[in-house]
Amino acid sequence: MSELAHLRQTALDHGNRAELADAMVARSGMRVEIDRRRGRGAGLNPAGRFENESRHVFDDGWSTLEELPPAKTEVQIEKPRKIITRNESPDISFDRSINPYRGCEHGCIYCFARPTHSFMGLSAGLDFETKLFAKPDAARLLERELSRPGYTPKPIAIGTNTDPYQPVEKTWRIMRQILEVMNAANHPVTIVTKSALVMRDIDILGQMAEKNLVKVALSVTTLDRKLSRALEPRAATPVKRLETIRALSEAAVPVGAMLAPVIPGLNDHEMERILDSTKAAGALTASYILLRLPHEVSPLFRDWLLRHYPDRYRHVMSLVRSMRGGKDYDAEFNTRMKGAGPYAWQLMRRFDLTTRRLGFEKKGRALRTDLFTPPNGSGVQLSLL
Results as ranks from 00 to 15, higher is better:
G103K: 01
I274D: 05
D201S: 05
Y165A: 00
F128I: 00
L142H: 11
L65W: 05
S147H: 13
L218C: 05
G15P: 05
L227Y: 03
D35C: 12
G256Q: 09
I34L: 11
M175W: 15
C104E: 02
D22S: 07
R357N: 10
S219K: 04
L227Q: 08
A23M: 03
F351K: 11
E19Q: 07
V316A: 05
E296G: 00
A247W: 03
D276I: 02
S228Q: 11
T152E: 11
V25H: 07
E88F: 13
W345C: 07
H56C: 11
R273Y: 10
Y313R: 01
R241D: 08
W304S: 04
R349H: 06
A251T: 09
D224T: 08
V253N: 08
R225M: 07
R225T: 08
A331G: 15
M348A: 14
R350V: 07
Y151E: 09
T221A: 10
R140Q: 14
L266I: 11
L358D: 09
Q177P: 03
R144I: 14
R307W: 02
R241P: 13
D137Q: 13
W172C: 02
E332M: 13
I84M: 06
M348Y: 06
L218K: 01
A26P: 00
N186S: 08
R321I: 05
A139V: 10
G103M: 01
S93D: 15
F372G: 08
T278H: 06
P342L: 14
S123M: 00
L132W: 02
A209C: 08
I83Y: 14
T160R: 03
K79T: 15
D95K: 11
K362N: 13
